[in-house]
């Protein structure tokens, strides 16, 4: 008898590797996935020049001869106290890291719908690969892709003028750990939602319905403090807020919404709960 790997975890890497190959061997898809955050960064981020509202010649009060330095100081303080950094672009750039992460996580669900439709899932089900390995491989490949894309977004942001004076290696590592936890949670959620579905239209609809609201109901683009109370409540439950908050504390040295240890604990609990639940549900569903 031939020697074969019979461990229950075999096949995870094979499946993960397949998804990654599909990604980096098809440059078009790779580029497409970067265009959206780039548009947000370059167009939205640069056009929403909130910083200029409060500083520079744009802001003055007619009749009162307030010295320019005073105006600038006030402007800086408003920015600092609102966004925790002196320019809005840096604030948004960090939010974009969470945006690209959840956007990629949502597509993990899409790819499992296609695997089912094209018969690939049935093929895998007739091999000795453990059922649980199928959702796990999807989550792992999504994490790798999303982190790589987040790194590229961060690089783009730096090139476009993000404030990088506070970035340290430890800060980078911590930020990516927070993003990783966020991606694990969301990828598990979307894989679980998708695994029963054969219709990519339905999956697309769910994605379209969710992607902007979960982003707006977080601090990804605007600080939580200035939201109405009901929205604050949602934003403070939303794990995206914690990931963005941790990244801002570590990359921009902003004062945080909550302290780092609470943020990490919250994200770890989010990731652990959804991935465990997701894998168990998919496993049970696929073993039918």
């Amino acid at each position: 008898m031939d020697k074969v790997n019979t461990s229950p975890l075999h096949g995870i890497w094979a499946l993960t590797n397949r998804d990654l190959k599909k990604w980096y061997k098809v440059p078009f898809i790779f580029l497409m996935s970067l265009i959206q955050p780039f548009i947000w960064l370059a167009l939205f981020g640069k056009a929403m020049n909130i910083t200029a509202l409060f500083t520079g010649s744009a802001f003055n009060i007619p009749g009162l001869n307030i010295p320019k330095e005073v105006v600038n100081q006030i402007g800086k303080q408003i920015m600092l106290q609102t966004f925790g950094t002196q320019d809005y672009f840096s604030y948004l750039a960090v939010g974009m890291l969470t945006f690209i992460s959840i956007f990629t996580a949502m597509f993990s669900g899409m790819s499992i719908v296609w695997d089912r439709r094209l018969g690939f899932l049935d093929k895998v089900l007739s091999t000795p690969v453990a059922r649980g390995a199928i959702p796990m491989a999807k989550v792992i490949s999504t994490v790798i892709r999303a982190l790589a894309q987040a790194a590229i977004v961060l690089l783009l942001a730096a090139l476009l003028g993000m404030d990088i004076s506070h970035i340290t290696p430890a800060g980078l590592l911590g930020s990516f750990l927070a993003l990783l936890l966020l991606i694990v949670g969301f990828a598990s959620l979307f894989v679980t939602l998708a695994i029963r579905s054969t219709s990519w239209e339905a999956q697309m609809a769910v994605m379209n319905l969710l992607n902007l609201p979960i982003l707006f109901a977080s601090n990804a683009m605007f600080p939580v403090n200035y939201m109405p109370t009901w929205l604050q409540t949602i934003a403070k439950i939303n794990p995206i807020s914690y990931a963005a908050d941790i990244c801002r504390q570590l990359l921009l040295a902003s004062p945080g919404m909550s302290d780092l240890s609470f943020g990490f604990t919250y994200l770890a609990a989010f990731a652990a709960t959804l991935s465990t639940l997701g894998i168990i549900l998919s496993w049970r569903y696929l073993s039918k």
Partner: peptide, 8 residues
């Protein structure tokens, strides 16, 4: 890929 799914 198929081979890997069989643990070969």
């Amino acid at each position: 890929l198929c081979a890997a799914l069989y643990g070969i």
